[in-house]
Design a protein around this nucleic acid. Sequence first.
DNA 1: TTTTCTTGATTGACTAATCAATAAAGAGAG
DNA 2: CTCTCTTTATTGATTAGTCAATCAAGAAAA
Lengths: 186, 186
Amino acid sequence: MEPIRREALVQAIIDEIGASGSLDVPVSRIAARAGMSSALAHHYFGKKDQMFLAAMRHILREYHREVCSALAEARTPRARLTAIIVANFAQSCFTQPTVNAWMFFYAQAQASPEAARLLRLYQRRLHSNLVHALRPLTDDPVRVAEATAATIDGIYLRAAFDVQHLSTEGSEIVLSVVDSMLGDPK
Amino acid sequence: MEPIRREALVQAIIDEIGASGSLDVPVSRIAARAGMSSALAHHYFGKKDQMFLAAMRHILREYHREVCSALAEARTPRARLTAIIVANFAQSCFTQPTVNAWMFFYAQAQASPEAARLLRLYQRRLHSNLVHALRPLTDDPVRVAEATAATIDGIYLRAAFDVQHLSTEGSEIVLSVVDSMLGDPK
DNA sequence: TTTTCTTGATTGACTAATCAATAAAGAGAG
DNA sequence: CTCTCTTTATTGATTAGTCAATCAAGAAAA
């Protein structure tokens, strides 16, 4: 029973953040969306912030799966690079509730050490994936990786607000930036 | 008296966000930091969210001044470009409390139309400044401007968490990315 | 019968916002 | 200059509402 309840609650909190656009959602409303009482939610998660952290872990796990499966099929360094970037803009990472949760995650990571730890985990993974893919492609992979990671996050951030305003798909913009950095003018 | 109190409160809310790392700061604590009662804070600002919006307007105004004064001295398109980017990483835009406030601003902008309006204002200004500077430098200024803006926000975002981890100054990274896009390999 | 689930009800704490009341500061009128 | 009168500034106390977290007790399952 426990795993079912936990998963339902995790999904409910993500949906609720998406629906209300805020983190200040009463536990009772989250629990109601998941079809249970607030007491039961507390029973399984203890403090409320654990619920949000569980939701972020879920989002990060999904993201990680997306990257891994994309990388598994990539044979060349260039293909790996493309795979990482495209995965960052995959459908599953780009739903309204997920993007909302990310914004609150950034805010939360400033006060909650646990959230900060999770965020650094994401950042380190992205960085190391990029460096690995870039090593055969440039003589300063760290620098290019940093710039690429920043561009990914920045595009994600902007897409979070005016999704249609970007003239191009997010991944295409990032890819063309990276191409420029690799001296391969578009 | 009113303008003095307002300014003190705006500064206090920014400092308090920086100190506590959270937006859930009681009005009473903000007021105390500004040396007055919570009732007085409400007297001048009405609802609490107006206080935060005033603080963001203050931060945005400061940022705008920074950009304008940098642009005023720039004579060439290239100098304008550099000025915009460097201004985004100016000391005054980069204090711990200011960066914290930005993170909450992003989160807030998802639920508060007023905050969203402010955020779009910032984004539009940055975009138009960049396009103007880039027009003589490339044949697709809009695309390059979008990528540049995203990279600025992305670097800012990352610097918000591990300030020392970046191998280089934020503005230098952005500049080298832009140089690449303009076909001027570093 | 013991363990796992489940909840209604309660507690306890916190806080935004308001209000009534006090102090201070000007602003003319004599 | 001094005495009202009005406006502005200021706060302590109160209100009213919210909500996280707990608990005791009941239902289900093993």
